[in-house]
Computed example of a mutant assay.
Amino acid sequence: MTGDRRKFSRQDEDTRRADLIAAAVALISEGGPAVATVRAIADRAGVTPGLIRHYFATKEALTRAAYSAVMDAMTEASLKVVAEAPARPEARLAVFVTSSLRPPVVDPAAMGLWAGFLHQMRRDADMRAAHEASYLHYRDLLQGLIADLPRKADAARLRADAIACNAVIDGLWLEGSALPDAFAPGELERIGLASVGAILGLDLAAHLPQEGNTA
């Protein structure tokens, strides 16, 4: 019984922590970091301000957790699609690129959160470290997919290709999130496939699986 109670308590704490992060994300997305005061976050989450201190030592620690949660969720969304893709390396990379350039990854709210923290990264070493960790996590995943392609490339080339391809995806993601009505359906995905394919020297679009086809 004691073990069951301990497990339930831990799950409850994880849920409460996630609720606080979600409240911070919503407020920051709506009005920037300045709007996400401790009291506002507590009101949005339906808790007292004092309870936040139980989970996060400072407001900055909570907002860093919120930033990391949003960035990690976008990466995980792309990885989930890749896990369901065909085993062919070209197909897996094509799916990774397209999933990074469509909803739910392309998202005005996520872009607003990212933009809201840009200034903070310049003066907050911990926030900069959180951004670096999320950036490197995504780039390393991308580099792994590129490394699996049937072509010869040393470590330096793989790194350079991953940086370049990541930059293309980042730029398209930013514009697609900022101006979602400025692009035709599938346009960002097609541009992303063509651009990443040009960097890597292959017709990536030709390897994109048809919807519903995992063969």
Rank of each mutant, 00 (worst) to 15 (best):
A155L: 05
A147E: 06
I146Q: 03
I146R: 09
C165F: 00
K152T: 15
K152Q: 14
A162Y: 02
A167Q: 11
I163Y: 09
A147C: 05
A153P: 05
Y138L: 06
A156H: 11
Y138V: 11
L142P: 14
K152A: 15
D154V: 01
A160G: 04
A156D: 15
A167Y: 03
I146C: 06
A160D: 07
A147S: 11
L158Q: 11
D140Q: 13
R159W: 07
A155Q: 15
A160Q: 11
I146W: 04
D154L: 04
A160R: 09
A167N: 01
L142M: 12
A147Y: 01
A155D: 11
A156C: 09
L158I: 06
A162E: 02
L145Y: 13
I163A: 12
N166W: 09
D140P: 00
R139K: 15
A147I: 00
P150L: 04
L145A: 11
R139D: 07
L142H: 10
L158K: 08
I146P: 07
L145R: 09
R151T: 03
Y138T: 15
D148K: 13
A147D: 05
P150V: 08
A164P: 01
K152E: 15
L141D: 10
R157L: 10
A167D: 04
D148N: 14
P150Q: 10
A164K: 02
L142N: 10
D148Y: 08
R157N: 04
A147M: 03
A153K: 02
A167E: 04
L141G: 01
R159P: 00
P150F: 12
N166R: 08
R151F: 04
A156N: 12
Q143M: 14
L145C: 13
D154S: 06
D154C: 00
A164I: 00
R151D: 01
R139C: 03
R151L: 06
R159F: 10
L158R: 11
L149M: 09
A155M: 06
I146Y: 04
A147L: 03
R159Q: 11
Y138N: 11
D161T: 03
G144H: 10
A164H: 02
L142S: 08
A167F: 03
A153V: 03
A155H: 08
L141S: 14
A167P: 04
I146D: 06
D140A: 13
A155Y: 02
I163P: 03
C165H: 00
D161E: 15
L158V: 08
K152N: 14
Q143D: 08
R157K: 10
D140I: 12
A153L: 12
K152C: 10
A160L: 02
D161P: 02
